[in-house]
Simulated assay, not measured.
Amino acid sequence: MRSKLMLSALALGVVAAMPALAKDRVGYQAIAAGSLTTAEQTITAERAIFPDRPELMLNLAAVYARTGRQAQARALYADVLGREAVAMDMADGSVRTSHELARTGLTRLTTAMATR
């Protein structure tokens, strides 16, 4: 099973141009633009409909991490790791699993905490 995913380039280090979407339902464009409040609102609304979509959990975790809510980010990354791994198409054309991305997010949280 492969999920289309647009994760924040800033949150997970994915560097690529992403074509504009008619409707940004996963918060990617808002995160990339630095509009974290808008991203959180978009993702939260989508999670009310699709609570188990890993791309929503990962993007919301990235928003939480960037807004100082490390405990919430860790909980979402752990939730992703507790589910079946899903292959995801990244903005740069690569394919990574939801588990790889969650582990990357957790590593970044740990690194950020260590440098404070």
Rank of each mutant, 00 (worst) to 15 (best):
G13V: 00
G13A: 08
V14H: 10
V15T: 14
A16C: 07
M18Q: 15
P19H: 04
P19S: 15
A20Q: 14
A20H: 11
L21T: 07
K23P: 00
R25H: 11
V26Y: 13
G27M: 04
G27L: 01
Y28Q: 14
A30L: 06
A30M: 06
A30P: 12
A30D: 11
I31A: 12
A32D: 02
G34I: 05
S35H: 15
S35D: 14
L36G: 04
T37N: 14
T37L: 15
T37M: 13
T38C: 03
T38L: 11
T38Q: 12
T38S: 09
E40A: 09
E40V: 05
Q41A: 03
Q41Y: 09
Q41F: 02
Q41C: 05
T42D: 07
I43G: 13
I43V: 10
E46S: 10
E46F: 00
R47W: 01
R47P: 07
R47Y: 02
A48R: 00
A48H: 06
I49T: 14
P51Y: 15
P51C: 15
D52C: 13
D52S: 12
D52T: 02
D52E: 11
R53S: 13
P54C: 08
P54R: 09
E55K: 14
E55A: 01
E55H: 01
E55Q: 15
E55I: 12
L56N: 09
L58C: 09
L60F: 01
L60M: 01
A62W: 00
A62I: 03
V63I: 03
V63M: 09
R66F: 10
R66T: 11
T67I: 00
T67K: 06
T67E: 03
T67H: 06
R69Y: 04
A71Y: 05
Q72S: 10
Q72I: 05
A73H: 14
R74A: 05
R74P: 00
A75Q: 10
Y77D: 08
A78E: 05
D79N: 01
V80S: 03
L81V: 03
L81N: 02
L81F: 04
G82F: 02
R83C: 08
E84K: 10
E84A: 14
A85H: 01
A85W: 03
